[in-house]
Write a protein that binds this DNA or RNA. Structure first.
Lengths: 378, 378
DNA sequence: CTGTTAGCGCCTTCAC
DNA sequence: GTGAAGGCGCTAACAG
């Protein structure tokens, strides 16, 4: 508790009666040290509790062995407990890949409300890392481009086109298309209502576009309305209130319900379900509901939510791997990788409960265009 | 995209026709630079896109401006989507405090399965930070003590006694005691069943002890059983199956149900509720259920879950502040801080729906023993 | 006001 | 096998 002066290589060296070079060799398990010497040094390190200084190491070897994961504050997120759930899942994937290389992840949330601008916050982070994972929607395309020119950058969940940085994304389009086709073909729904996400998020408009284009291909099917739900549960509730209009929830003529309410994410779907239920509307008998994401609550709620599962954690893992590859070789051409999303049929769409085991333990979804596997650093 | 050689102070200095000291002064907004010169340097920095090297800065100023948050892999967590939710909430609190000082957080999950031992993983992290936040249950008391002697350490959610490192914890005991009293006094329940958490987690045994001691004080009240649930939803389901025994779920004599099933956390309570419902047992009419934590799903499920809300994010904020204080002055005596938890009455305990606004927007719960406020670094 | 200089702790050739 | 010495990029006195 006393020896607050931090130990250096020199302390260890002199305590062991060797030079710092020898201690360094021992630390890194390099050859060329007599076993006896090695052991002596090891003992001293152990006794003193020496831990090398990461900053000095980074400096000498020009590598920090740290990558940064940057996300933006969602102003609404504080109200909803499930707020950053998505990024945190990505974070776990990133951490997983990094941990077995002894690298680390710096997690950072940029805030627009603070006086210091986003650029300054990003600088501070950039200074401490070898590369950056920047979630979509934080930087405009041109700013991203400038940044990517100076430091390795990968954008997880980014727009699937038009960036010059590496992008990895989930198949929002095909996921929503498959779900919509299920609703259209298997259930024969013809009057569909859509609850949309925020316009600035590329996930949201990819899903919406998939929905609209798929419905358009089915003669007789129609979109009875689109409500801007903003990705939070409240948005789902409001959408339902709008649909129900001033219906008092009592017996009597009920307003025209759509066959199904398609929500751009699970949270809104859950809000919609709760609101429908409290109005006495039965799901899926009176109206079906679907979501997107596969959050925990959706599997617990009654009826269980039909949705599209995103391989979020895998997204983090792959993004991290890509970044590592780019750090190892910055001259790589920009790449775009798409991960497929999987339709998860439960009961809110009108399907009967599965008799088989409810969730497949299948291996991770396949990477759509398999990229050349470069060797990660170290 | 071409200039891959990273820029240094010297590049900027020579491009601006000044010395590196001047550039450094400009970077740090220090006085003593003629406005014209300052502007010229600023322009060059902007043009070149110079970002200082964090490693070199850390080295020169003996401070990395990074703290580490270390948690352990929960082997069961992968199965449950809501896995690391708790730590992630802590992480947000930490990040929040750090971000406005321009510090960063290194997030790390130690794994016991990997060949490299925990000590080695911790070393790697320690090398990169100024201080460590180590979640409870990762290190044995003696190892923690050794570590804390060498580097500033705070243990969030740690055992409320017997450590020599700084500890910050939530009032599990009083939280569970208040909840239990509510069940006993307001509802008059007399036959209580407990679903316990894992024995190695101090949160779990503090809650259990509070439950047992509170029940013991009420004449006529009895604990009809304790089931080891392990903090996952499956544990709650199993507990209910155990209680129901071989009851087929059909009309006829039903096994003796307890008045209430008290669960050590929300996930198990949710598992219990689902299992009860699928057996046709009505909640809270036939049996009441309570949880602990206040996760999102508990507020959505029907009936809404009565629980104890932990100020998890606040825990992270306070832990971080404490750590910053200790980094600023390592000679501080070890401190223990307890945050109070708040009873959150919803309907699963048998209470009627609130007529008031459902959730209070009250300010953050008070810090119980207000510690002396030392000045954080910088 | 501005420039020069000495480290910070470690890695890494290069001699011995 | 082992040691000596230069340098990584930056900060912070200390001179001018």
């Amino acid at each position: 508790v006393s020896g607050r002066a931090v130990l250096t290589l020199y302390d260890v060296a002199s305590a062991a009666g060797v030079s710092i070079a020898t201690v360094s060799r021992v630390m890194h398990e390099q050859p060329g040290v007599r076993p006896a010497t090695r052991q002596r040094v090891l003992d001293v390190i152990e006794e003193l509790g020496y831990v090398p200084d990461g900053a000095a190491q980074s400096m000498a070897r020009h590598r920090k062995e740290v990558i940064g994961l940057v996300t933006a504050e969602n102003p609404n997120a504080d109200l909803e407990q499930e707020g950053l759930h998505y990024v945190e899942e990505v974070l776990r994937g990133v951490e997983f890949v990094l941990s077995r290389l002894d690298w680390s992840v710096l997690f950072s949330i940029v805030r627009h409300d603070v006086d210091s601008d986003v650029r300054r916050q990003l600088q501070k982070i950039t200074a401490k890392v070898d590369g950056l994972l920047i979630m979509d929607g934080i930087l405009a395309a041109d700013q991203l481009e400038r940044l990517a020119a100076r430091v390795p950058v990968v954008v997880p969940a980014g727009p699937s086109q038009g960036t010059c940085a590496d992008v990895i994304t989930v198949e929002n389009y095909s996921g929503m298309a498959v779900l919509t086709r299920h609703l259209l073909k298997v259930h024969g729904y013809r009057r569909l209502f859509y609850v949309d996400g925020p316009p600035e998020v590329s996930d949201a408009w990819e899903r919406r576009r998939a929905f609209e284009e798929t419905v358009a291909k089915y003669p007789g099917a129609a979109i009875t309305g689109v409500f801007p739900g903003g990705f939070e549960t409240a948005g789902g509730r409001q959408a339902v209130r709008r649909i129900l209009g001033s219906w008092p929830g009592e017996p009597g003529p009920r307003p025209d319900l759509p066959d199904v309410i398609v929500c751009a994410n699970d949270k809104m779907a859950i809000g919609a379900i709760r609101e429908l239920q409290s109005a006495g509307v039965s799901i899926p008998a009176d109206v079906a509901v679907s979501g997107f994401d596969d959050i925990f609550t959706g599997s617990i709620i009654a009826p269980p939510l039909t949705t599209v599962r995103q391989p979020t954690r895998l997204l983090g893992e792959r993004a991290c791997t890509m970044l590592l590859e780019r750090i190892a070789d910055p001259s790589l051409a920009p790449r775009v990788v798409r991960l497929s999303a999987e339709l998860l049929i439960r009961q809110s769409c009108g399907c009967p409960p599965a008799t088989r085991p409810p969730r497949s333990t299948a291996p991770q979804p396949a990477l759509v265009p398999q990229p050349a596997t470069a060797t990660p650093p170290r």
